[in-house]
């Protein structure tokens, strides 16, 4: 369970202050698949970064499984990111010197698992995202969509309770994009992992069990009319 309570985020650039999130509150139950939508600059990425412990809000609280994660030390937040959260970036987020399999098990190795266990787990996750034939490939030998699916497998390797994905399909063609979204949906259904993803594309709403709309940093009930 994730609870966002009165979260505001103000970026300060010199003397200029940009309010990216304004008093945002909502909750996500375990197992939900939530799509965060809104126009460019509405604060979607900012919101996801507060939830995924990559950034700290200026005000408000983020409660993750009953734990107020905003006030935690950076090393505790880093450990939480490793153990409990998965993050899928928009693009090019794999380590170029590692194979698909190694990229996937790296967080498990960091967590201290046994070599045999995480090798097996990485392979089964790659199979789950449909890349069992690409285990030993390096990122540059994979297509954009395949790389994104490796990144998804990596996000899953430590059995997180939630995965965050910021426009995971933005740099993919529509076919690969669909494949990635379908992979996420399937993992949500099969593993019960909570997924929050950001999308520009109104069509991506179909993959979500619920939509959260942002407009100028505020939560709104309805999507902004196009135009």
């Amino acid at each position: 369970m994730i609870r966002v309570e009165n979260v505001s985020k103000i970026y300060t650039l010199g003397t200029v202050k940009v309010t990216a999130l304004r008093d945002v509150s909502f909750a996500v139950d375990d197992g939900e698949m939530v799509c965060i939508s809104g126009r460019s600059g509405s604060g979607k990425s900012t919101l996801l970064r507060q939830l995924s412990l990559i950034d700290k809000p200026t005000a408000g609280r983020v409660i993750f499984d009953g734990l107020d994660v905003v006030s935690l030390s950076e090393s505790r937040r880093s450990a939480l990111r490793l153990d409990r959260l998965g993050y899928v970036f928009q693009e090019y987020a794999l380590i170029p010197e590692l194979t698909a399999e190694e990229n996937v098990f790296l967080p498990a190795m960091m967590r201290g698992g046994r070599s045999r266990d995480y090798h097996a787990r990485a392979r089964s996750l790659l199979e789950l995202v449909g890349l069992d034939a690409r285990v030993a490939h390096r990122p540059k030998e994979l297509s954009g969509g395949e790389q994104q699916r490796v990144a998804i497998a990596r996000a899953l390797v430590n059995e997180p309770s939630a995965i965050y994905a910021d426009e995971p399909t933005a740099n993919l063609d529509s076919f690969s994009g669909q494949e990635v979204m379908q992979t996420l949906t399937r993992l949500n259904a099969e593993l019960g992992v909570t997924i929050l993803f950001v999308s520009h594309d109104p069509d991506d709403g179909q993959y979500a069990s619920r939509m959260i709309h942002l407009r100028d940093g505020e939560l709104v009930d309805e999507p902004e009319p196009a135009g």
Partner: peptide
């Protein structure tokens, strides 16, 4: 730089 940020974001110390 970006890669290091990503590695840290996924919990590599």
């Amino acid at each position: 730089r970006r890669q290091i940020g990503i590695e840290r974001a996924i919990g590599i110390t």
